[in-house]
Design a protein around this nucleic acid. Sequence first.
DNA 1: AAGTATTCCTATAGGCTTAGTAGGATATTA
DNA 2: TAATATCCTACTAAGCCTATAGGAATACTT
Lengths: 155, 155
Amino acid sequence: METIFITPKIISQKCRYALRAIFELASRHTTEAVKISEIASSQAISPRFLENILVELKQAGFVMSKRGNDGGYILNQPAEKLTVGQVIAFMQGAVKYNAVPAYDIDSARNGDYAFSRLWQRLNDSISSIYSNTTFADLVKEETIAAKDYVPNYVI
Amino acid sequence: METIFITPKIISQKCRYALRAIFELASRHTTEAVKISEIASSQAISPRFLENILVELKQAGFVMSKRGNDGGYILNQPAEKLTVGQVIAFMQGAVKYNAVPAYDIDSARNGDYAFSRLWQRLNDSISSIYSNTTFADLVKEETIAAKDYVPNYVI
DNA sequence: AAGTATTCCTATAGGCTTAGTAGGATATTA
DNA sequence: TAATATCCTACTAAGCCTATAGGAATACTT
């Protein structure tokens, strides 16, 4: 089967940063607030850009924030319940996404029905993956991989 | 399951026009060349824009062309063999698509592995749909739908 | 051979989206 | 009140996408 590499295009950089930021919080398993600068350096994101993103994520209810000296961000939902789909839907939706136009028999052109179905199948398939992947899943997958890949250090 | 409508964003307008143009040729089941203007009006595409698209599709080998008075375009491959994936891969690839970056243990950040896997699953899922849908499938689906939806004409 | 119809090729421009930056306000803690 | 860090709004530069345009090449017709 031919592989068509399109995924990075589906998800904007901003959205991927959002996913990474939440992943970072989830992977720390901590109740302490994590600073923007920490997340930014750990995930290689422009701190100033990440700032804006985290504000949005807070407004969406994905994270909580704390200001002041020991301020930072904390997950506002259990990583086991939070799916990548929720975050993607919010981030991409926030910038106005085009919906698949509904099939309208009256103004239909040759092919409208068949293509509408095709796009629908695609959406369903993508949504299925998105909504079945939690951040806990990702953290677990990453942890297992890290364990497998430990190099042979000479101490 | 939450549905995230993203499909139109994955596929550029140009690419969708390309799919529509090929669909139009496939659905005519004819050996005669079809003019750009016919395809354009039938599929509601700017004729001038479609011109460029068809030249690309010709260079890719999907269609043949004939110039002059009875000129136009003809499918160059059987609709049963030609998949939407082939066309999409060419059209999107032609404008330089980003590949999913390979996972590199040396420069890896926390999450690289898990996200790389996620995007890969997504790509596989999408590719599977694309490469299992031929234009013959689409034409057939459209034909069946049209039959079902025939209104009660009074002649 | 001339005329007409059509595809072919290259360039370009306007509009929209995105990524990233900046300044200053607000809140928290000590 | 001083220090630290989040919060909010606005802005800009760059890139991409859609669509258009002019003219060249080719094929058919008469």
